[in-house]
Design a protein around this nucleic acid. Structure first.
Length: 439
RNA sequence: GCGGUAGUGGCGAAGUGGUUAACGCAUCGGAUUGUGGCUCCGACACUCGUGGGUUCAAUUCCCAUCUAUCGCCCCA
């Protein structure tokens, strides 16, 4: 049997309504914040990711899906979304468009060659947003609010926002020197990984889980202590705005994030949900004021975030979030071959009118037809056999009320439409958490 | 890349070195030749992830491999 590739999975019909619900929520919130969708290729020149994400990050050094094409070019399946978006903004000169601040979002598959586990796959999906052209902390605050709103719109309440600032290039450089100086006599007390990080990516030592409790790290200098005046101001303003927007956050002085390109604000949103295990970070983001310039674009600042959609869905599972209920309006029950012509005509009429219609294609028993109608969650079942054909009528049963009526065949569509217009006693799309009718 | 656990019908899940591989759910047929959801009866795995080895005999033991899962690393 052919099997799927390691770390990939199929989104089956039973799951897709949940995906659609999440995607719809994302698009709706994006509209509210006035972000426009951008769709970039899922592969790019390998060099793009090396230059943007950072040569020494794990993502680039050991997790990319690389391949050579027939023209001997080096390609990489995108491991994250920002690089491609930045490339596109530069290449299409979106920074020169009549809208001075470009606010973009994307959604789609990403690829990392990793050992799969729950909530982590080789082909996974991200939803992310990027805003270009402003260094205002108001935009940082908007980003964080945007991310939180997506979670709120999905009714996820148990979330924590952590923020920190790395400052501008000057701050980052000052801090790095201070950290290296501080750690130098203590390197041998750090874990093995951190001894490597000391040389390659010292900032990441800060949020090492092994050394977390150690005195060395607790007393280590933090990025916030080395902010330049402007950087400090930026961060102070962000905090003020978040307070005014009534967005709960905690300042995590050890938060540094894994990608090289961040400056100033960095943030993470965690779900406090046991089912996520080690993968509780739903969203990570921050400001990257130098990346556009580093990739040969103009010197314009930017800020963004990315969500892992699989993790979002996992978190939703724990709050028992369901996608939209699947249903059809009509299940046409055809009894006897001689009735199929008329039935085909009636089905077509209803579908042209926009009704969701299905029927039994296996000539199974009436019992089975009812069972099929039930599993399709049909509101109405229409029964058409020899007797009805004779009388030019059709029996139609409302599965919700159990009431069955006999009507003229040419009244079928109108009958269903009329019934659907009547207010339902059921509370189907209730938005109110405290509604007594919802169970 | 490293370490632990697991792999039996569509799903869940027993089981054993020896020849009919329990059971539950789902599905299908019938009782009820045109009104389902309850009940009863019946059907449903040339086969126990894949490949190889040990053995007279392997689903069971051994090795490899694949996949899943948990943790590490890292990240979303």
């Amino acid at each position: 049997m052919q099997r799927k590739m390691k770390g990939t999975y199929d989104i089956l019909p039973s799951e897709s309504s949940r995906w659609q619900a999440v995607e719809r929520a994302i698009r709706r919130v994006s509209k509210i914040y006035n972000y426009k969708e951008i769709r970039t290729p899922i592969f790019e020149q390998s060099e793009l990711f090396h230059r943007s994400v950072g040569e020494d990050t794990d993502i680039v050094s050991k997790e990319t899906y690389d391949f050579k094409d027939r023209g001997d070019r080096d390609n990489t399946l995108r491991p994250e979304g920002t690089a491609g978006v930045v490339r596109s903004v530069i290449e299409n000169k979106l920074y020169a468009a009549d809208i001075p601040v470009q606010k973009l979002y994307y959604m789609g598959p990403m690829f990392r060659y990793e050992r799969p586990q729950k909530g982590r796959y080789r082909q996974f999906h991200q939803f992310g947003a990027e805003a270009f052209g402003s260094n205002s902390p108001l935009l940082d605050a908007e980003m964080i609010s945007y991310a939180v709103s997506v979670l709120k719109s999905l009714k996820l309440k148990e979330v924590t926002v952590k923020i920190n600032s790395l400052g501008d290039s000057q701050s980052k450089e000052d801090y790095k020197i201070a950290l290296l100086n501080y750690l130098e006599p203590n390197v041998k007390h750090l874990c093995k990984d951190c001894q490597t990080r000391y040389k390659t990516n010292p900032l990441r030592i800060l949020d090492c889980k092994v050394d977390k409790g150690s005195l060395v790290l607790k007393e280590a200098p933090k990025p916030l202590d080395y902010l330049t005046k402007e950087s400090q101001e930026h961060f102070d303003n962000l905090v003020k705005y978040l307070d005014q927007m009534d967005i709960a956050y905690t300042i995590d002085k050890a938060l540094v994030r894994g990608l090289d390109y961040y400056t100033h604000t960095v943030f993470e949103v965690d779900a406090n949900v046991s089912s996520l295990g080690a993968q509780k970070t739903l969203c990570g983001g921050g400001r990257y004021n130098n990346l556009v310039n580093d990739l040969d674009g103009p010197d314009i600042p930017a800020v963004g975030f990315a969500f892992g959609i699989e993790r979002l869905l996992l978190a939703l599972e724990s709050i028992d979030y369901k996608g939209d209920a699947e249903y059809i309006h009509l299940f046409m029950m055809i009894l006897g071959d001689d009735q199929k012509e008329d039935a085909a005509k009636m089905i077509q009429r209803c579908r042209l009118g926009g009704l969701y219609v299905d029927t039994d294609f296996l000539d199974r028993s009436m019992k089975s037809k009812f069972n099929q109608a039930e599993s399709h969650n049909a509101r109405f079942v229409a029964i058409y056999g020899a007797n009805e054909k004779e009388a030019n009528t059709i029996n139609i049963k409302d599965q919700e009320s159990g009431i069955q009526e006999t009507i003229e065949t040419d009244q079928l569509y109108t009958y269903i439409m009329t019934k659907l217009m009547e207010p339902s006693s059921k509370c189907e799309t209730c938005e109110d958490d405290d509604c007594d009718d919802c169970s």
